[in-house]
Amino acid sequence: MAPTSKLLQKLADGPVVVAEGYLFELERRGYVQAGAYVPEVVLEHPEKVAELHREFVRAGSDVVEAFTYYGHREKMRVIGKEHLLEPLNRNALRIATGIAAETGTIAAGNICNTNLYVGGDDAEDRFIRAIFDEQIGWAADAGVDYIVAETMAYAGEALIATKAIVDAGLTAVVTLAPHQTDRTREGWSFTDAARRIEDAGASVIGLNCHRGLWTIMPLIEEIRAAVSVPVAALPVPYRTTDEHKTFQALEDPLAAAAGNGRAFPTALDPFTVNRYEVADWGRAAVAAGVDYVGLCCGAGPHHIRALAESIGRTPEGSAMSADMTKHALFGDYEGIKAENQAHATRM
């Protein structure tokens, strides 16, 4: 039996909106280095992390997720800063729980893929479990409501993460990350993986990252039919296609500076979806049975606002939603110059 949490109570009343995407948004703003993608910003510029938390909540996110993605021991080793591991995690958690308390939202901890798992190596699996255990321990100390285990391309690693969260007595939200094929990296179907993760004790199961709004949906529908727990969908807000199902696969001849002709990760701008596409997807996702609905890498507050509004919410940020009737050229308000309206047709 999963522990009682604010998240599960809120899910019982309807869909929950969740903003992820901190990594890409803070990289765009100049506070995270692309490539390493380690969230040192929580130590160097904590006010910027708090600001983004507030922006996402104002846009409609029900959750404040601690920015500890890639803030684990292996990534800290890669950048030569293992001594900052605990301070980084504890500071990220302090920021998130503080903003959640301030805004009346739900605080979540976060663990993610370690980039170490390949399966079949017991010693490596024990080390991965230790990586998860220390981050979960700090999150539990901070008083988070639940833990997200995200971007797991290997279902085996997701199972290690699930067990670590459940063993800590916390609610587990586990999201796998699908690549070009409709299989996990070890070759399991996503329905098989989802059932095993449910059996391991996860309270919410689904997919996040890699695939866009519409290329993620066939797998989401399969998972919805396969499990009894709430289902999560947090795609990337990029225009992926049947040929290029993931944002890593998108190609752009103008992205040569990225080094390989692929737009990922620093030349994705031309592929970004607009807020109206997000709204269309949000309605379709909830209609398909998605309970935990959000966006991952690339999402901005305007995307989250559109998503929240698409399912009937009116967040604080809706006060600034577009109203083109007031536009000086395209509007129809009293007193608008007819010459301006005529000019608008020639622009």
Rank of each mutant, 00 (worst) to 15 (best):
T240I: 09
Y69I: 08
N113A: 14
A140E: 13
C209G: 10
S321Y: 08
G282I: 08
P39I: 07
G35N: 05
R262H: 15
M152H: 13
G98P: 03
E309F: 01
P237V: 06
P218Q: 11
V273P: 00
E20R: 02
A263W: 05
H53S: 00
V144Y: 10
Y22L: 12
G206F: 11
A59L: 07
N274S: 02
F247H: 14
R183S: 00
G335K: 06
L234F: 07
T246L: 10
H343Q: 13
T246A: 06
L116N: 06
K48E: 15
M347G: 02
R54I: 01
G21S: 04
A172Q: 06
P270Y: 12
E44M: 07
Y22G: 00
E243M: 05
A257E: 14
L176Q: 11
A194L: 12
M1I: 09
L88N: 01
T151R: 02
L268E: 07
E51L: 08
E20P: 00
A233V: 11
F127P: 00
T175K: 12
A164C: 08
L307M: 09
A328K: 12
L85D: 05
I304R: 00
L176R: 02
A288F: 09
K163P: 00
A19T: 04
H327F: 08
S189K: 06
A161L: 10
E157I: 13
I220L: 08
G282H: 06
D323V: 07
R262T: 04
D199E: 15
V78A: 14
R305M: 14
E316Q: 13
E124Y: 02
T241L: 01
K75P: 00
E277F: 09
R275Q: 12
T181C: 00
T345D: 03
